Simulated scan of single mutants.
Amino acid sequence: MVEELIILVVAIVVAVVLYKLLKTATKMAVNAILGLLVLIVANTVLGLGIAYDWLVILICAVAGVVGALLIIVLNYTGIAFV
């Protein structure tokens, strides 16, 4: 009886932890995709000429929309990603 209760409690804890992790991972994935979309649209519409190399994709994947805006500003000012 005690073993079954322990297993039930552990299963509930694991379910809660997985829910929180997946919820956070989903938000991060959506933010990364939106960041890349903002960069692609800005690059296409404004003709910025930003190359899609591993650094640009990594910045957009980690920082999302804010990262894309940072890349656009740095490209526009001529500091980086020219």
Rank of each mutant, 00 (worst) to 15 (best):
V62A: 09
N31P: 01
N31V: 07
G49M: 15
A61K: 01
K27H: 12
K20M: 12
A11K: 03
V41K: 09
Y52H: 05
W54S: 07
C60T: 13
Y52Q: 10
T24F: 12
I12D: 08
V65T: 15
D53Y: 02
V66M: 13
V45N: 03
V66G: 04
Y19K: 04
L55R: 13
A29Q: 05
M28T: 12
G35P: 01
D53W: 03
M28A: 13
A11N: 12
V66S: 09
G47V: 08
Y52S: 07
L48R: 07
I33D: 01
V30N: 04
A32H: 02
M28S: 14
V38L: 15
L36I: 14
L48H: 11
V14R: 01
I12C: 04
K20Y: 07
V62S: 10
L34E: 09
L21S: 07
L21R: 13
L58C: 02
W54N: 01
Y19M: 08
A63K: 10
A15Y: 00
V14Q: 01
V65R: 08
V14H: 00
A25F: 11
K23C: 06
A15W: 00
N43Y: 12
A29W: 00
A25T: 05
L58I: 07
I57E: 00
L21M: 11
L46A: 15
V13N: 01
V30S: 09
I59Q: 09
V45W: 11
K20I: 11
A61M: 05
Y19I: 05
I33F: 07
A11P: 01
A63W: 09
N31S: 11
L55D: 05
I50Q: 05
V56M: 02
Y52L: 10
G35M: 06
K20A: 09
I33R: 04
C60F: 08
L21E: 07
L39P: 00
A25Y: 12
V14E: 00
I57V: 14
K23P: 02
G49N: 12
L55M: 06
I50R: 06
G64C: 08
V62L: 14
C60S: 11
K27W: 04
K23Q: 14
A25H: 05
G49E: 03
V17E: 14
I50T: 05
L21I: 13
V30Q: 05
A42T: 13
I50W: 04
N43Q: 06
L34R: 15
A51G: 07
A29H: 05
I57N: 03
G64R: 14
V56E: 06
L22P: 00
N43I: 09
A29T: 15
K23G: 14
L48Y: 13
V45Q: 08
I12T: 11
K27A: 15
L37Q: 10
C60H: 05
L48W: 04
T24Y: 11
L34G: 05
V30G: 03
A32L: 07
V16D: 09
V41I: 15
N31G: 11
V65A: 08
L46H: 04
L58Q: 03
L46M: 13
V14K: 03
A42I: 11
L18Q: 06
N43T: 09
T44H: 13
A15E: 00
K23F: 09
K27G: 15
G47I: 08
L39A: 10
I50P: 00
